[in-house]
Amino acid sequence: MTNKIELHHGDGGVKTSELIQKVFLKCYGNDREVPLSDSFVFTTKSSKLAFTTDSFVVQPLFFRGGDIGKLAVCGTLNDLVTAGAKPLYLSASFIIEEGFDIDILCRIAQSMGGICKENGVRIVTGDTKVVEKGSADGLFINTAGIGVVSGHYSPCEIEAGDEIIITGTIAEHGTAILLDRYDLSVETNMISDCYALNYLITDLKAELPYIKLMKDPTRGGVATALNEIVAHVGNNVELIENRIPITTQVKAINNILGIDPLYLACEGRMILVVKKGFGNRTLQALKQICGNHDAQMIGHFTKDCQKLVYLQTDIGGKRVLPSLEGQTVPRIC
């Protein structure tokens, strides 16, 4: 085992987890266990707030369906949504390489402003650093966010039978990045699913009491996100392959590339764990109220406790979906 940082340490899979445990948590000296969720929730005298941060190093900076600015805002908004929070304020910090085109920076900042306006949030603080040519690859952005946690959402213990919903088709962001980065000459109109998910807090209010957990399947995709969940919960997850929504275009492109779309990032989808028996109701609400026609109930938690995610395949076979080991695609977000 090498003692140097490798690309795998940033893929959101097993290695990232190891790094967090062995370096950050150990050195920060957190004396009590802080749950490793995408947002930290804390209570003040008057309200419950969520706080999060995320950095964005996507390459290319502009991709089909978005750009690094849109991603930087949506990514942080979505992390707040996973905590049941309505986002309020964001910070935005830029690390820019000397020589970077100011017009391009303008386009990215405008994109960020536009998404914030659409979602009723404001960027209220930030920072700008410029490094010498060659010290960074164009532009990196960090955003942090704060939001108020909805009183309707109170995540609770997951049990056997609880149902798993995905709010839309999978793997579109990862596939879009692959197409643009490698300039694959594939004729397709598919775009990244990059999108802010605030509507889940506002439009799905009536269903929030039955939602036990929300997680956005970004790096490492649906398979890795579910593995992170089972690692904490203990119970296995059974997914039904033919219920997992995926467009034929995404399926075909990944087939060509030999990549399993279950491990590719979404940037505008959420995994919802819903109380047993309430999955269909939530699914209907997602389809009718939120217009997520592709949302599907893709599986459930079983009573077995081996911390495994497995797939019931189209032909009735079974296979394990382990956590991501080995980089699928670096710098995807």
């Binding site: 030999g258 797939l311 395949t313 032909i315 009735g316 076979g317 079974k318 296979r319």
Partner: peptide, 12 residues
Amino acid sequence: TQAISKSGIRYL
């Protein structure tokens, strides 16, 4: 090799 593993056919 990959298709056999991905299809879960061994289970059947």
